[in-house]
Every structure is written in structure tokens, then in C-alpha cells.
Design a protein around this nucleic acid. Sequence first.
DNA 1: CTGGTCACCTGGAAGC
DNA 2: TGCTTCCAGGTGACCA
Length: 270
Amino acid sequence: MPELPEVEVTRRGIAPDLVGRRLASADFRVPALRYPLPHEERSQFVGRRLVSITRRGKYLLLDFGSGHLLIHLGMSGSLRLVPALTPPDKHDHVDLVFGRTALRLRDPRRFGAMRWIEGDPMQHPLMAVLGMEPLTADFTAAWLKAQLQGLKAPIKPTLMDGHRLVGVGNIYASESLFRARIDPRTPAGKISLQRLERLVPVIKATLTAAIEAGGSSLRDFIQSDGSSGYFQQQYFVYGRTGKPCRVCGRPIRELRQGQRATFHCPHCQR
DNA sequence: CTGGTCACCTGGAAGC
DNA sequence: TGCTTCCAGGTGACCA
């Protein structure tokens, strides 16, 4: 599930319980996720106090003063707070134990990542290549127009390219383009400034609404029963192939762009 | 640089 | 019922 809103909701869900507390131990039950887990660097952060948890794109950065622990949830990752010593399930790969509470990483597909970064985390190769944060004032139609200049690739996969714009994944790319009434197949460089002035606020609003919807389920992060902590969203197009468009009633269509499913309403999006 | 494809990994759903 | 195939919210590597 983790696109920007889910990562941000996770951050808000776990930060109040963890910030300011000392990391007592770190248990790694698999050797690697996307990258080898930070076994050797463990001594660098065990015993340290957690200063803050911030987000950059879909990454979480846990600041331990002497360095940052970077966490990415991949396709199937989730973080929950559980009472320490809670027996792990099959895909509970990492526990960061803070006193009586453990931050538990579950990730069945293991596309997620956890890395220890020393120095300025934004200089790290994984961070330095990241694009614009969509929920900032710098993300404007004029900026996006310049970014898309000359690009022939379709707008939908282009919006999902984290080297240009971070946080917008497969769900919110389809949803945002529907709300902005833009056909996902439109060559990115051909979209007028006028239409981008519609798209940019829509992306901000779509992500913000999803974060706010997740806020109501924040308490799930401190449940120990394994409930997901994520929220169900009322989507306009995502996963609604063949179902009536919520605006015009015509069937939602599905197509594939870059091996990913795209959902759209051919009547409403042009 | 751009644009396209593949790989990583597991599990659930759909198809036969 | 049981086996096979396809698909899933991300992204880095690789190629032309």
C-alpha cells in the first residue's frame, strides 16, 4: 500500500510513541530486504535516543543523532508498534525495541529497504536522486511544465517517476489524473500550462485527503493484532475496471503502461 | 538524456 | 479439489 499518504500516516502513527526514547535492541530475522540489513552498523544506533522521524518521498528517516536509519516499505511493507516480546509472524523481519514497545517491520515481498546512513542523509545516493516533494509550495504548475518540457512519454508513468516527483504511486497517479480530467496516455510534454494548473492542486488535494483519511486509523499502529493500519479509500477509478464512472456512469477502462495497470474514464479524461 | 523492459519476492485470486 | 497462471501499492539496473 505504501505511497506517500500511507508512509506519512505511518510516520504520524509511530512518531509520538518513539521519539525521545532509547533504542534498546534491534532484531533482524532475515539477512536482507532489497539490500543487506544493517547488521554490522547495528552498534551505531543501538543505545541511541531517537531524535525525530521525518519523511522524504516514500522513505522514512529515523534520526538517531549519530546517523539516520532509512526505511522504505516497498510494495508490501508495513510498520506497527507491538509490545516487546510479541512473537513474530512469518514475515515480521525486523524489530526495533524501544523499552516496552517494539517497532515491527513486516514485508512479505521484501522489496522494502532499511539502511544506516552517516552524515547528511540527503547526500546519500538513494536520497540525492529524489525529485520534488508534492506537498510543498515549490511544487507548482510552472515547475511541472518545465519538467515535462519535450517529454513524449505518457503523463501517468511520468508522474510516478520518483526522480522528478516523489510520492505519487500507481493508485494516486490514476486518481489524480481522473480528478484533473487528463487522459493518462497524453504525452507529458504536450499538456498545456492551463491543464497543469488544474493537475498540480489536484495532486496535492488527493494526497492530503488520503493522509487525512488515514488519520482516523492512526490508532491501528499501536494495535498488536496485526490489523493493517492502513485505510480503505473511496477510489474514483483505481481497481474499478468495468464499473460505472462515478461522474458520468460510463465504464471505467483499464490499460497497461510500463507493466502497471492504469485506470481511467475515456469520457471524463481527454 | 529519454524511453522501454526486466528483476527482485511472496501470496492471494482467478482460471482451468 | 488441485494445479497453473497472473497479478499486486516500488524502484534500481540495464539496454537501445
